[in-house]
Amino acid sequence: MLRLDGISKSFRIGVLGSRYVPAVRDVSFELRPGEVVSLIGESGSGKTTIGRMVLRLLPVSRGTITFDGKDIAAFHGRGLKDYYRTVQGVFQDPFSSYNPVFKADRVFAMIRTGYFPRIRDAVWREKVEDALIAVRLRPETVLDKYPHQLSGGQLQRLLIARALLLDIKLLVADEIISMLDASTRIDVLNLLGDLKERGLAILFITHDLALGNYVSDQTVILRRGNVVEAGATGAVFGNPTHPYTRRLLSSVPQLHRKWEQVESELSGVAGRCPVHTANDAGAALAEVSDDHRVACLALGEDRPCPDSAAVSAGTAGR
């Protein structure tokens, strides 16, 4: 449904925009209906940039993003509005997504004037209530309230309800639970799981490996704009292959298991670089098992990959 094909993004920096910093390099993955893909990375990994490109908030520098076979860069006017009818985003800070001067449910009214100008009042009210019930909010407790009267979890769920008003097929959820308290976090995560069962595709962007693991089918691990490891969540977390993935996993504070314990479990020999020992050396990612792809093990390090010399220098250029 959504397909990212070798997309890259560089930002201009400097006084006259004379220099470029690459933020995302050659990232490809696919999202199918009813599937949750987690984009996991630390700050500066390009995960938010990818989400913003999918939402057409940023243009792509190279590569294409296609939705149902159509290049999203070509959408204008009417076409773009139709795109937003099916693809919506929810962002990290629920408090800054609302205008504090107006009541929180104004976000619903804006959807109505923008997308459903001719709908009857009664029908609309029912639609709003259905959306609120879908995100497990009681309409009477959240409607007609100002943002400061509601909790972060309620505001975040209101934003998801707003997206649901539009029969969306894809939701881009960028760090939507990192500002929420532990006791309400899991409710929003479970909600994403329920929406997925209704056939919604979700691009779940997070820095927290445990959250990504809980809800997603596919996982993409990013480092400085590159994909280092990707595949089925069970494969990536069950058999982390790239040293960066292992380092991330061994740094996550876990309950019931101390850092030293996790580290000793993960500190096996890294093995040969799958990219440079594969037959088709030169691809960015090599398949190590079914639905589990890993980048060159030296990716992002300052030293060259020890296995790249073994492959003849002529064919292995990346």
């Binding site: 693991n213 809980y214 019931h256």
Partner: peptide, 17 residues
């Protein structure tokens, strides 16, 4: 209510407070 690495939505559904 804390999701841990390895706990999955399908396998073990956690609940909040």
């Amino acid at each position: 209510s804390l999701p841990e690495v390895g706990v999955r939505y399908e396998g073990k559904r956690l609940s909040g407070i």
